[in-house]
């Protein structure tokens, strides 16, 4: 009898110890159900959209796969909940999704009053201008007197007015509600300039324009749109995982670890590479994960550069430049904190 009680006590104790070393409630729940529930876009080209076979594709989507690879060791163990813009925050707050990777701009009020925690920015966007090449414009500062196509009711419209006022220029807005119509108005020559987020401009030019080479996207960005994955407040360990998956993907790119060479890299002599891939050190344990967490991520989706190029990069119909999203070593803003 005493032996049984002792055994039970030992079992309880070991359980307690085990759970103390484990990750927070979100990760426990994910392990228990066996998949990550990821809030995705209902359809945004290059970031989260279903392909012809109904499989989710995109930059944000690959992040969800990466989280699954890190936590469960299997990138396919993720389910997507397409969320509309209005619904996305409630879905995260109510626990319907574990993480929201849905091109959401990180802002102060969302971080505080909506009870979200933003992970590092996985895509830096900003509002830009596209003009007809025949106008011979090379800078937004030369747009005085231009006719500008813009969608109403968004910060886009306000940023546009601010920019022209700040630079003391006149412009004629052509305000059109629907996205399709505003685009076709621009391409039919109704206005000289079309303004929206830079990624949207590039995508529109590459895939909708009758002749993409007739249009130029000007270098200036007039607003900041840092798009970041978000999690619920109150589970710091889950937030850590979401954060460090991103940094690991950046570190991997910096160190030249790719989906293709990750197995060879396991034998690399570089101590940083060894730490990232879990050959040495206890990086995974510190996050409450397997030490091969980053190896699994890179094996499944590749490093940040690969994810970018596969979904929105130069070889895709969207043909986006790395720009702000280049590594800090190449003049961009993507700066991975050290995995050590």
């Amino acid at each position: 009898m005493t032996k049984k009680i002792l055994l039970a006590g030992a079992a309880l104790l070991s359980l307690g110890v085990a759970s103390a070393a484990q990750a927070g409630p979100t990760v426990d729940a994910i392990r228990q159900k066996g998949f990550i529930q990821c809030g995705s876009n209902t359809g945004l080209a290059g970031f989260g959209n279903p392909d012809s076979a109904g499989n989710w594709k995109g930059l944000d989507v690959d992040y969800c796969r990466a989280y699954a690879a890190a936590v469960l060791g299997d990138a396919s163990k993720v389910r997507f909940t397409p969320l509309s813009a209005q619904q996305r925050f409630t879905a995260l707050q109510s626990g319907e999704v574990d993480v929201l990777a849905r091109n959401t701009t990180a802002t102060l009020t969302r971080d505080t009053s909506l009870g979200l925690e933003f992970a590092p920015v996985n895509f830096y966007d900003g509002q830009g201008f596209m003009v007809q090449k025949s106008l011979n414009v090379t800078s937004a500062k030369q747009l005085a007197g231009a006719t500008v196509c813009v969608q109403p009711g968004t910060t886009t419209e306000l940023n546009l007015a601010d920019f022209f006022r700040a630079n003391n220029m006149q412009f004629t807005p052509v305000v059109i509600e629907s996205q399709d119509e505003v685009v076709s108005a621009y391409f039919s020559g109704r206005c000289d300039v079309y303004t929206t987020d830079a990624s949207g401009l590039a995508g529109t030019r590459a895939s909708v324009a009758p002749k993409p080479e007739d249009h130029v996207i000007l270098p200036e960005l007039i607003s900041k749109e840092p798009l970041a994955p978000a999690v619920r407040q109150g589970d710091p360990q889950w937030k850590d995982i979401v954060t460090w998956v991103h940094y690991a993907m950046l570190e991997a790119e910096e160190k030249g670890i790719t989906q293709a060479n990750v197995d060879q890299m396991m034998t690399s002599a570089d101590p940083t590479v060894q730490r990232i891939l879990g050959v040495t050190g206890e990086m995974g344990k510190a996050l409450g994960l397997d030490n091969k967490w980053a190896y699994n991520v890179i094996k499944a989706v590749g490093n940040y550069g690969e994810v970018f190029e596969r979904n929105v990069g130069a070889q895709t119909p969207l043909r986006l430049e790395r720009g702000l999203n280049a590594l800090w070593t190449k003049g961009g803003l993507q700066y991975g904190q050290p995995v050590r």
């Binding site: 209902t42 359809g43 945004l44 080209a45 290059g46 959209n49 279903p50 392909d51 012809s52 909940t81 397409p82 969320l83 509309s84 209005q86 619904q87 399709d180 685009v183 995508g203 529109t204 895939s207 909708v208 929105v312 895709t316 119909p317 969207l318």
Partner: peptide, 25 residues
């Protein structure tokens, strides 16, 4: 669609978000 279910019409709209096939409204 506002609650993220792909019924017939929403699926048609989502099909248009494939980067390769945008614009065939």
């Amino acid at each position: 669609i506002i609650i993220g279910l792909f019924d017939l019409l929403s699926a048609a709209k989502a099909a248009l978000t494939d980067p390769a096939w945008r614009g065939f409204y």
